[in-house]
Amino acid sequence: MNPSESNLSNGPAAAATLAAGIGCVAMGVFSTLSEVSQFVGRILNFYNPTGNLSGKTLVAIVIWLVSWALLKKRFADQEVNFAGILTLSLVLVGLGFLGTFPPFFDLLAD
């Protein structure tokens, strides 16, 4: 075991897990928004050859990384309710998958 691993709280794990959920849901939200709103779709078109996929992915990645940094600072050296954080993260990941699913955003676009 690494010396740095001893006395390691579950805070950093909770931060990384929850941030992954936030990143996934951000990807789902921007996928849906760009299909529902032409305005959002145009704004997210950072690079013409890929269309708004460039913007959706870049914004989702920035949200994921920023939330990870903030959560890591918030949970540092803390013992948190990991089961609760994991459950919340899985709900967010599930919503992320749903947001990328075409029948879902087509339903909202109609």
Partner: peptide, 18 residues
Amino acid sequence: WLAPILATAAAYLIWRYG
């Protein structure tokens, strides 16, 4: 694009907690 986000989080947990 969900795959690398989730894989990175898993890799961090594995690297950090060892």
